[in-house]
Amino acid sequence: MKVSLGPLLYCWPKESVIEFYQSVAQSNIPLVYLGEVICSRRRELKFSDYMALANMLRESGKEVVISTLALLEAPSEYTEIKKQVDNGEFIIEANDMGAVQAAKELNLPFVCGPTVNNYNLASLKKLQEWGMQRFVMPVELSKNWLSHVLSEETPAFEVEVFGHGFLPLALSARCFTARHKGLTKDKCQTICIENPAGLLAQTQESQPLLRLNGIQTQSAACIDLSPELASMTQMGIDYFRVSPSSMESVSLADKLLEKQSNLIISDAASCNGYWHQEAGFNKV
Rank of each mutant, 00 (worst) to 15 (best):
N213V: 08
S206Q: 12
A178Y: 03
Q202H: 11
P196K: 01
R174H: 14
N213L: 04
I191C: 10
C175Y: 08
Q189R: 14
Q207W: 06
Q216K: 12
Q218R: 11
T217Y: 04
T184R: 12
C175E: 04
C188A: 11
L200H: 11
L200D: 08
N195T: 09
A178W: 01
P196T: 03
I191S: 06
K187P: 02
C192V: 05
K187V: 11
Q218M: 14
P196F: 02
T177F: 02
R174W: 06
F176G: 08
F176Y: 15
C188Q: 04
F176C: 10
T203R: 06
A178I: 09
L199T: 02
G214D: 01
C188K: 09
R179C: 09
Q207R: 15
N195I: 04
D186Y: 07
A197C: 08
I193N: 07
K181Q: 14
S206R: 15
Q202K: 15
S219E: 03
P196H: 03
A178P: 02
T203L: 08
D186K: 12
Q189F: 10
T217G: 02
Q207I: 15
R179Y: 14
G182D: 10
L200F: 09
P208R: 10
S206L: 13
G214L: 10
L183T: 05
K187F: 13
Q189G: 01
C175K: 04
C175V: 11
Q204W: 12
E205M: 13
I191T: 08
L200S: 09
R179V: 09
T184H: 02
L209T: 00
T184Y: 07
A201K: 12
T217M: 13
S206T: 06
T177Q: 00
S219G: 15
N195Y: 15
L212W: 01
S219R: 05
L199Y: 06
Q202P: 00
I191V: 15
L183M: 07
C188T: 10
L199M: 12
Q189M: 13
R211F: 02
G214V: 03
S206H: 14
C188F: 08
S219Y: 01
K187H: 13
T203K: 08
K185F: 13
Q204C: 08
P196A: 02
D186W: 07
R174F: 07
A201S: 10
N195F: 15
L183Y: 06
I215T: 02
C175F: 03
Q204I: 13
K185Q: 14
Q202I: 07
F176A: 07
Q207P: 02
G198R: 00
A178D: 04
A201L: 09
T203Y: 05
T184S: 15
L183F: 10
R174G: 02
L210E: 01
L210Q: 00
R211S: 01
G214M: 12
C188D: 06
C192T: 02
T184L: 14
L200K: 13
L212G: 00
Q207G: 07
E205P: 03
L199R: 06
A197W: 01
S206P: 00
G214K: 06
L200P: 08
A173Y: 04
P208S: 10
Q218N: 14
S206I: 04
C188R: 04
I215E: 00
K185N: 09
K187A: 11
A197H: 11
G182M: 11
T203D: 05
T203W: 09
L209H: 07
K185L: 08
N213D: 05
G198M: 03
G198D: 00
I215L: 06
T177C: 10
